[in-house]
Design a protein around this nucleic acid. Structure first.
Lengths: 135, 135
DNA sequence: ATAAGTCCCGTACCCAAGTACGGAGTCAAG
DNA sequence: CTTGACTCCGTACTTGGGTACGGGACTTAT
């Protein structure tokens, strides 16, 4: 298809044009060959790409990590891909646990605040102490 | 108690001394009064504080957000605290959803890689597209 | 009482992830 | 065929989260 100019692409995914160009420099988004001294055109693939980057970022991946994740998408080198994916998976699971703990803590806090004003000694700090520090 | 010097504190929680000082400037960690031209002493409260900051950071909160969260711990101003907490809670739940999606996608990828080599067209990209883009 | 090792504090530097800027080229409409 | 909007590309600036550095004060072992 290749229907977007860079600014349309940026607009479609809700980021700055400069951000697209920045991603291109980082190799996260393809730079289509420009047609004989002209203006590059982008398609759905690029839209998907940028959305992926932004989503992955929202959950805490760095651009370098995202670059790795994107390599998995090639389908080739399944062995390597698997190693990276497993590593990330462990990582993600740890993040999930932490998030779940803080979610519980926050929900509890909100709940207590709602039902009973007064001495709420916040459970947040406790929620994030993995070991009850025996040092 | 107040048994740690700043470097012992840093060492106890596994961060750089400079990081502690940086947090103090940001108001994230208390700076105990220094005893008449001398050296400040830190206790378990500061250890907990720094660990909290690091944990919260791991799951994607910024230092500014963490400062807000820490204010909730005061117990006072329950109304305000509740508002902040509710906001954060919504935020956390969104992060959780995203993480769960990517966890599933990664787990699937690993699984497929394990059982069947060959044309694995990575489910990651799909996993992070909220809407199947109908534009 | 002195040298080694810390601490205090300010300032400067670093990296990641953008954002802004500016000049030159392109393209579509009037 | 010019004007205005947009593109291309390079370079510079910004913000968040630290790290590093350096001079002077303090404290402790010898």
């Amino acid at each position: 298809m290749q229907t977007f100019t860079i600014s349309k692409l940026a607009q479609a995914v809700g980021v700055n044009v400069e951000t697209i160009r920045f991603y291109q420099r980082r190799g996260l988004v393809a730079e289509p060959a420009k047609p004989l001294g002209g203006i590059r055109r982008y398609g759905e693939a690029e839209v998907a790409r940028v959305l992926f980057v932004k989503s992955a970022q929202r959950i805490g991946f760095t651009l370098d990590e995202i670059a790795q994740l994107l390599q998995l998408d090639d389908g080739t080198q399944c062995k390597k891909a698997r190693a990276i994916a497993e590593h990330k998976l462990a990582d993600v699971r740890k993040r999930l646990q932490d998030l779940q703990r803080i979610e519980a803590a926050l929900a509890q806090l909100v709940d207590r605040c709602a039902s009973r004003r007064g001495q709420v000694s916040c459970p947040l700090i406790a929620a994030l102490q993995p070991i009850p520090h025996a040092l």
